[in-house]
Amino acid sequence: MSLAGAVNHVARRVPAWTIYVAGTTPPVWLLWAGASGGLGADPVKAIERTLGLWALKLIVAGLCITPLRRFAGVNLVKYRRAVGLLAFSYVVLHFLAWLVLDMGMLWAQALGDIVKRPYVTVGMVALVLLIPLAATSNDWSLRALGTARWRWLHRLVYPAALLGAIHFVWLVKAWPLEPFVYLGIVIVLLALRAVSPGVLRAGNEKGANPPPPLASS
């Protein structure tokens, strides 16, 4: 069996709800570890950074699902909604960690930072862009909007991913490699959207059709 076939074989047997279960564990662990001294000298930054990084990783994972099917014949589409909703949850938790733990609920300073600090603004815009996606990640919304409009709306994840990666690049001091790696990956994944499947498919029979809307499982 090919690698793609093996992955598809496993994917048929692992239900999407496992993503939600697995995704709930890290934030609970982070809070517990932070409260009990397990996150080092600065648990606030550790929680904030970890949640933000995992939000970005999950957005990247979500963006991988369509190209994986188009170019490699790996079908993980049934996990896409779970990955997307989990990514949104991590973005919200990252925001809450910033507002409550980092800013200590200094509303005026927090609002000032959102308006005045470009890297905060960019992150905040990414969060806002993801709200309609999370709100319509259900079968009812898909039916109500119709496939075409729903799919158009969900392209908002492209600017959100780009802004999320820029947010990361913009907040660090000096020029560490990691944020640029994420920005590079996001740019490549977005660029793949513009490539027609035939170019890279190289004889792969699967994935020739345009991707259907989000699976309902």
């Binding site: 409260a35 606030v44 200590g104 300073q109 600090r117 913009w170």
Partner: peptide
């Protein structure tokens, strides 16, 4: 230019030390 210097977090104050 990228962040406020009006407040600071004191390391060692745990999760809810605030600013």
């Amino acid at each position: 230019p990228r962040w406020s210097q009006a407040t600071e977090r004191r390391i060692g104050e745990g999760l809810f030390g605030g600013r």
